[in-house]
Computed example of a mutant assay.
Amino acid sequence: MTSAPVQPQDTPQEVATETLYIQNLNEKIKIDVMKQSLRGLFKSYGEVLDVVAHGNLRMRGQAFVSFASADIAKKAQKEVNRFPLYSKPMQISFARTRSDAVVKQLEAENYEKHKAARLEHKKATRYTNPLKKKFRAKRMAAEMDGAAAAPAPKRPAVQMPDEYLPPNKILFLQNLPESVSKDQLMALFSQYPNLHEVRLIPTKRDIAFVEYMDEASATVAKEALHNYKLDGENKIKITFARK
């Protein structure tokens, strides 16, 4: 399994490295989908060597994206920082240490030494790092409180807003020009691989459904075309369809 570089909190003065440290990611998005979305978003700046993200409690909402050079990472950080990925503005800084992928690509002869040093650091700080100790204490307290608490009363069902629906292979399009045709939408969305079907609603011309062969392909198309001005004026709103 790919390991993330070590990232201490609050760097006093950032130094550009090949790896970006990303925070404030939408935790409702599946890890595989998030990694693919990040790769698709950053590949326009240069080769993406690796994307690291984990679903465990400590690493939730965070990821590392590694490039072949610090210059590429610096340009990507400057232009993408605060970009609202899945409706949450990303907070992007530079990782303090070099990732495994970067060392393996650029300094293969030092890879084993780098890996051994990283594992030793992880072992040495597992029980002494004050941030980790604080995290474990909070988690244990939360578990104890949860075990002791009485069952919470049921809340009334509230429909989740479209923007926060979990990814799937069908996209829901809104705010379409009423003159839009199926052929126009086919031409627009077929730019992205694995398009399966476009469905217009005869009685409501400003909405449509676009289905891809898989969830990942739909995610890439959604990220690329959300807010696209099909008629040069109105922005298309694209969300995942409700299941």
Rank of each mutant, 00 (worst) to 15 (best):
F42V: 01
P8R: 06
F209D: 00
L195Q: 10
Y45P: 03
L185D: 03
Y111G: 04
F189D: 00
E211T: 08
L25C: 05
E112Q: 15
P84D: 10
F172Y: 02
E27M: 07
K243V: 00
A216S: 06
D214P: 04
R155M: 14
A149E: 15
E14I: 08
V65Y: 01
Y127S: 13
N26A: 10
A116R: 11
K169S: 02
K122N: 14
P130L: 11
H226W: 02
Q62T: 12
D214L: 05
A124M: 14
I201V: 15
L25V: 06
S37C: 13
N234D: 11
K115Y: 11
M34H: 05
A116Y: 12
M59G: 07
K222P: 00
K132M: 13
A150R: 11
I22T: 02
F189H: 00
V33H: 01
Q13W: 10
E14G: 09
G40L: 05
G232H: 07
V103C: 08
T19K: 01
L173Q: 01
N56S: 12
H226G: 01
R60E: 13
A117F: 14
V80N: 06
A95V: 05
Y45W: 09
L57V: 07
E18A: 14
S37Y: 02
K28F: 06
E79S: 11
N110P: 04
L165I: 10
A241T: 00
R136K: 13
R136P: 05
D162M: 06
D145C: 07
Q174R: 04
D231F: 08
K88R: 15
Q105V: 05
K74Y: 09
A142I: 04
K229S: 05
N227K: 11
R58C: 03
K237S: 02
P89K: 03
A76T: 10
S3C: 12
L131N: 09
A218V: 02
K182I: 12
P167G: 06
D231L: 09
D162H: 03
N194L: 07
Q184W: 06
L41Q: 09
R118W: 08
R82V: 09
F94T: 04
K123V: 08
V198G: 01
Y228A: 03
